[in-house]
């Protein structure tokens, strides 16, 4: 079989999208009100992620206590049925540990951690279905559930992946595209151009990097708006219930 036609001469991608088109993005906030302090559910195309936040709370171990800021812990679990082929994953798989560290570093920069000394904020991410953009959908879900938990943060962190096909940047890759192309994932603070996360696992020509990042930032800003709509919608609903 010849190589997949990822980007047709007519400018259509393998799933019929344009180069600058996001997959269907849907998010819900406060999905698990009884079992967590904050929760969210994010769908980016066929990637589906649940995120719950516990805390700020008293750490179980003294070693987890930090005297002048909050201790933040991220746990990732990817369901066995998340990929096309059923696969058992251990928690200590190197890829997962790396994702976990990346997310921890990202979230530390956006939460105002000094407001929560001697506490633990535990973020649990459950991946239900995986179809590209894993890191970005996890970041988006994490942002939403932190907001739901009422934890102070400087701004939204929204994230998206971009890949490079030949000379063309493509936005929001799915698994098929991710396997073939080199791509990077960025995390953007709010509506600014500041990056809190940049993940590039393969090679990208240096002269294309700027173009890729600027596309990713624009895509992230759009995602931020979509998430903001959901937060506002949910907030209004709550206010209506209270009065």
């Amino acid at each position: 079989m010849p190589r997949l036609e990822l980007y047709s001469p007519e400018g259509l991608r393998i799933d019929g999208r344009r180069w600058n088109e996001l997959r269907r993005f849907e998010c819900k906030i406060n999905t698990h009100p009884n079992s967590s302090d904050g929760s969210s559910y994010v769908e980016q195309g066929n990637s589906k992620v649940i995120c719950t936040v516990q805390g700020p709370m008293e750490p179980k171990l003294r070693s987890q206590m930090n005297h002048d800021e909050a201790n933040i812990e991220v746990n990732i679990s990817i369901a066995n049925f998340a990929t096309f082929q059923r696969k058992k994953r251990s928690k200590n798989e190197r890829r997962i540990v790396e994702l976990k560290n990346t997310l921890e570093n990202t979230v530390k920069q956006c939460i105002i951690t000094t407001l929560y000394p001697r506490t633990l904020i535990s973020i649990n991410i459950q991946v239900l279905s995986q179809d590209g953009g894993l890191l970005s959908s996890m970041t988006n879900a994490m942002t939403l559930s932190l907001i739901d938990a009422g934890i102070s943060m400087y701004d939204y962190v929204s994230s998206i992946s971009v890949g490079l096909f030949d000379q063309f940047p493509l936005l929001d890759l799915n698994t098929l595209e991710e396997n073939e192309l080199s791509y990077l994932t960025v995390g953007v603070i709010g509506k600014s151009d500041k990056l809190v996360m940049l993940m590039l696992e393969n090679k990208v020509p240096l002269d294309k990097l700027e173009e890729l990042i600027s596309l990713a930032i624009a895509g992230s800003h759009r995602l931020r708006d979509l998430m903001d709509n959901e937060v506002k919608r949910h907030g209004k609903l709550r206010l209506k219930n209270l009065n």
Binding site: R17, N20, E211, A218, R222
Partner: peptide, 11 residues
């Protein structure tokens, strides 16, 4: 790159 250039669909 402008945000307006991004195409997105949602429910």
């Amino acid at each position: 790159m402008e945000v307006a250039d991004i195409i997105s669909i949602s429910k």
